[in-house]
Design a protein around this nucleic acid. Structure first.
Lengths: 334, 334
DNA sequence: GCTGCCGATGTAATCGATTACATGATCGGG
DNA sequence: CCCGATCATGTAATCGATTACATCGGCAGC
């Protein structure tokens, strides 16, 4: 593969000049510039980013570690991160932590070895020593979707509290009194936050949440299903279930379908996270939509500010309730 | 950030020895090895993959360019590619071509600059000069999901012909006689192939496919919707529509729902690509499932063979029909 | 016509690893 | 007791770019 030296020889100039053309430095004659370009074309020259990065200590690359690549929420997030990074001239290297701390750390290490300019992490439950050390060393790090308390790392996330309050009000208005929660893990900030907002909203509505109505899963399909089974097997099963994310909702729907129960007549369903197909299932699912694309964009901007040593304040974006038919009780129209 | 030189100094050895420890070369005393490890730990040493790659001309990185990151088919593909690559000790850098040739070429260029060891491409419609040139130069390239005729590039894809034949038979058995196709672009091998298999199967079943029943979209939601509208507006609208991928199906469902038509009573629906939520919508959608995960794994293995200069034969994996209720006409059970 | 400056280009050091080759110590056999 | 083999380690060249500094030619100003 052609190197800068070959281009220089072919164009009859020095490597410095070729490099100047590559980085369009002003002090190069139009004529020389053209000759160099011709040489590059003739040799199919592709600059070696590895060599360049070694010299400049910048890779124009960002790392992104997401929680679970099979979760459409993260996919959408990844997409918007990708787009925004690309707009800024950065490449994104993505790692899928699969919600496991060891996988997360593996990717952190690999990405550090690759010398990414900055790192975007949706942190897993446990704070690992590696991440802690990075945070304390002031590495260009931004958390996305989830925070970890006590670390001075800027974070972009959405706040669902208001939407959850609204949702509980909606359920109450629709006559639901036995409302259960299939939440995400209490070890994740998102899990905790949604749980608290939910129980608070319940008390505010004059309802209580008996402990057996609040259960913790892992933001994946399986736990959604098993929690739903447990809830429906209770002496007094709930008449409404709020799921902590879209995958748990999917699991819950499986179980409800398997039991041949009708939504919302037998049990109402609502979900944190809105995904396209919620509109298409029968009945369409009431959900809380996060501003996913905006979160991705903000996160990239924040990270780039960190990379450039500018102040980078955390951002919290509100989620919003999208009412469909899965909680409707009065006047069911079908 | 600590360099190999610092580790060497700290451990009282030469850089060569540290490098040997890093690459676990056998001829290093256990004692020295320990001292070096201690030094690395003390200094929080992270080897610089950029420098290493420059020297070794290998990055242990693969590039993956997918058609559309919002399409769950590609997401699942990406996931399995990622997993398999990781298993082999490679990192994947992914680019989203968004079904556009210029975006695809942008990523090809970036990935070449980054000197990925191999490139996995789901090629867009047009063969670009860049890709052609790479193929002809014998670059370590593997096509995934789609081929481009006349290029000597190994390819991993699925073959839906048999499943499509089965589907048409199923539709015929269910009494459908006016079967339309909302296909993908005829510029893509997958689009063409599915179209041909479909029309062939139709003739085999003794049915004809009038030209107005065969329409081409772009594998995205919008075209699925508009084609469905066109089909339903025909003087003799079809009583069954087969969509070329899951996103076009999504668009079709939108339109059918908007017109308040019932599936399958008013119009039957089947989809190429199976996605989780097809099971959950009402009625569950009959679909042709591709062995997505297997395709990803095979593609990585094939690419690695190319990287290692071993023979790399193309692979074609059969897709299979999953019958649900969206085409059922006789004895609808609900 | 000379001086000094500026703009275009070249020379060579450098980034952080790997690795061929050199070196020096140790040890066994004759 | 000496020689050569073997093993652990060190020295220095190298990968392909960037860039500080040097150089050179030309032109404006006096």
């Amino acid at each position: 593969m052609a190197r800068i030296k070959d281009v220089a020889a072919h164009a009859g100039v020095s490597v410095a000049t070729v490099s100047r053309v590559l980085n369009d430095h002003p002090s190069v004659t139009d004529d020389t510039r053209r000759r160099v370009h011709d040489a590059m074309a003739a040799l199919n020259y592709v600059p070696n980013a590895v060599a360049r990065s070694l010299r400049t200590t910048a890779t124009r690359t960002l790392g992104l570690i997401i929680g679970d690549i099979l979760n459409p929420f993260f996919t959408e997030l990844a997409r918007s991160v990708e787009d925004e990074a690309r707009r800024e001239g950065f490449t994104v290297v993505m790692g899928n932590a699969d919600e496991r701390a060891d996988e997360q750390d593996h990717y952190v290490r690999t990405l550090l070895e690759q010398r990414v300019d900055g790192l975007l992490i949706c942190p897993t439950a446990e704070l690992t020593p590696l991440v802690q050390q990075l945070a304390e060393a002031g590495a260009p790090l931004v958390f996305l979707d989830r925070t970890i308390d006590g670390l001075d790392v800027p974070c972009v996330r959405s706040d669902g509290s208001a939407a959850i309050t609204e949702l509980v009000k909606h359920l109450h208005e629709q006559g639901h009194r036995h409302i259960a929660l299939a939440s995400g893990p209490s070890t994740l900030s998102t899990g905790r936050e949604r749980t608290r907002a939910f129980t608070d909203a319940l008390s505010a509505a004059g309802l209580t949440a008996p402990p057996e109505y609040v259960r913790y899963g892992d933001f994946r399909e399986g736990s959604g299903r098993s929690i739903t089974a447990e809830l429906l097997d209770l002496p007094t099963p709930p008449d409404a279930i709020f799921f902590g994310d879209n995958l748990m909702t999917l699991g819950g729907l499986e179980e409800i379908r398997a039991r041949k129960l009708r939504i919302p007549r037998d049990v109402a369903v609502a979900s944190f996270d809105d995904v396209t197909w919620f509109r298409h299932i029968e009945p369409p699912i009431t959900a809380i939509a996060q501003p996913t694309a905006e979160m991705g964009r903000r996160a990239v901007q924040l990270l780039l500010r960190r990379v450039r040593h500018q102040p980078a304040p955390s951002a919290v974006l509100p989620a919003r309730l999208v009412i469909r038919q899965s909680c409707q009780r009065k006047g069911i129209m079908r």
